[in-house]
């Protein structure tokens, strides 16, 4: 694959921890690759199968779901719902012929700007290494 291949990643970030963590990365001027497009959701538990599969149907190279650390959910247990759903969704992805690793769930707190920037850098590199999608879905990748 050409070196200039740029994966396109959709990130669903919970409003209370991870979205604020991504803000913190900005406030701290921590650079990361411009591959991610962030969608704000109230809680990681709000992200359902439809949203994730729609991303892949449209051609996303990867999807990141990020929420509060266990025990720190603003809504007490939304992130546990996200975690359970994530396990099932990864199985669904491999059933669809999409590598499981293209879906990732992470805990990022409001204070973890550094963690967020590292996460995006690392995840982008991993997905770039994985290359464009190999399933027969819509043409993957595309220019950013």
């Amino acid at each position: 694959m050409a070196l200039d291949y740029q994966p396109k990643i959709v990130g669903f970030l919970c409003n209370w921890c991870s979205y604020a963590g991504a803000d913190m990365a900005g406030t701290s001027r921590l650079t990361y690759p411009p591959n991610i497009r962030i969608i704000r959701v109230p809680c990681s538990g709000r992200v359902d199968a439809t949203l994730v599969t729609k991303c892949f149907q449209q051609g996303a190279d990867a999807v990141l779901v990020a929420g509060c650390h266990p025990g720190e959910c603003h809504y007490s247990e939304g992130n546990y719902h996200a975690r359970r759903r994530f396990t099932v969704l990864r199985e669904l992805l491999s059933f669809l012929g999409i590598e499981k690793d293209r879906l990732r769930l992470e805990w990022v707190s409001a204070a973890e700007g550094k963690k967020f920037s590292q996460l995006v850098s690392e995840f982008s590199a991993e997905i770039a290494h994985l290359g464009p999608r190999k399933d027969n879905g819509k043409a993957a990748g595309g220019s950013l």
């Binding site: 809680c43 538990g45 439809t50 729609k54 991303c55 809504y75 719902h81």
Partner: peptide, 29 residues
């Protein structure tokens, strides 16, 4: 307004004002 009920609903009957399924899908699309 956490929206857990929306993702739990099997019949697409539940929605969340301000973060509706249509709004989030529109962002993806």
């Amino acid at each position: 307004g956490c929206g857990l009920c929306v993702s739990a609903c099997r019949g697409v009957a539940m929605n969340l004002k301000g973060f509706s399924q249509q709004q989030l899908l529109a962002e993806v699309n």
